[in-house]
């Protein structure tokens, strides 16, 4: 058989395999996305909905180029955006600091304990997210468990504001996202070839040098993968701030939800959503560039 027809056949096979998925994604992902994109530059209707006219001021309200005749620029949106970024990045940093050493500990356990530890880490998935978050409300509220303990120990005299703070949101986020960070990090730590660590020591490197030159670069794919998997949903998350941040501390997710549901300003909500997506794409782009430089078949999220 000639090379050309063989290649044609391969393309045909690929088409059959990928066709249904592509169709599904086109209908249920790309179409809604396109609709959102269009909405984000339409004029908000008086009583909800949108009017079919180009309207850049949805973005203008957020980014500061609004035409004062129609909309006012309000820096509160940017500050919510920055707060969301800050919370998401802090969540990534804390989950990483917790999970990275833990992954090494678990990978050195005997096989039986390893399976058990992995089971424990995925255990929270079996309970409803809302229930788990409301437990934190019980713990953190004015008359909650944490305040009770702190007061009875005499550390504070008045109940402290623990809930409805940025700290409470971060706590809840870390709590939810730890398994998402742990699994990819663990996968790359588990794959680490310890004879390379021995080779490094054999060649005169101490523990610190071995870590930075061998262990860290080889587990970096897991670190980056885990960070992305945590960062993206953390940035747009609205359940955690809704439960633990209340009306006081709002994140992008809540703002978008509010625009769509209570304010009924779909175009403005769509514009906010587009900005979140732009931020995520921006970060993914850098990740892919970074991975690309590491070599053609470098492990990514494996």
């Amino acid at each position: 058989m000639s090379g050309a027809t063989q290649r044609q056949r391969r393309y045909a096979q690929l088409g059959i395999l990928l066709g249904p998925v592509s169709l599904f994604l086109a209908i249920f992902f790309l179409c809604p996305l396109a609709i959102m994109m269009i909405y984000s530059v339409l004029t908000p209707g008086l009583y909800g909905g949108a009017e079919w006219a180009f309207y850049p001021d949805n973005f203008g309200r957020i980014l500061g180029f609004a035409n004062p005749e129609f909309e006012v620029f309000d820096p509160v949106y940017l500050s919510i955006f920055l707060r969301s970024l800050r919370i998401a990045l802090t969540t990534v940093a804390i989950t990483l600091v917790v999970c990275y050493p833990a992954a090494f500990q678990v990978s050195r356990l005997p096989d039986r304990w390893k399976t058990f530890a992995l089971f424990l880490i995925t255990l929270p998935f079996f309970a409803s997210l809302i229930v788990r978050l409301f437990v934190w409300v019980l713990i953190l509220k004015k008359t909650g468990f944490a305040n009770m303990v702190l007061q009875s120990l005499g550390i504070i005299s008045e109940p402290a504001d623990l809930i409805y703070t940025e700290g409470a949101i971060i706590l809840g986020m870390v709590y939810i996202f730890i398994p998402f960070m742990f699994l990819p990090v663990y996968a790359s730590v588990e794959k680490l070839d310890w004879s390379l660590v021995r080779a490094s020591q054999d060649l005169g490197a101490n523990g610190f040098q071995t870590f930075w030159r061998v262990i860290f670069p080889l587990t970096l794919p897991g670190v980056i993968g885990g960070s992305i998997i945590v960062f993206i949903p953390a940035l747009g998350n609205f359940i955690v701030p809704a439960v633990l941040g209340g009306a006081k501390v709002m994140m992008l997710g809540n703002l978008i939800e509010q625009q769509f549901l209570s304010a009924r300003n779909w175009p403005f909500g769509a514009a906010l959503a587009m900005l979140v997506m732009a931020a995520v794409l921006f970060i993914l782009f850098f990740y892919i560039r970074l991975e690309g430089r590491r070599g053609d078949d470098a492990p990514a999220l494996r």
């Binding site: 070839d193 004879s195 021995r198 080779a199 020591q201 054999d202 060649l203 005169g204 490197a205 101490n206």
Partner: peptide, 15 residues
């Protein structure tokens, strides 16, 4: 410790 011994090794799987 290994990193302070004046010997070097060719490992079984090259490492």
């Amino acid at each position: 410790p290994p990193h302070r011994r004046p010997v070097n090794t060719v490992f079984q799987n090259y490492a």
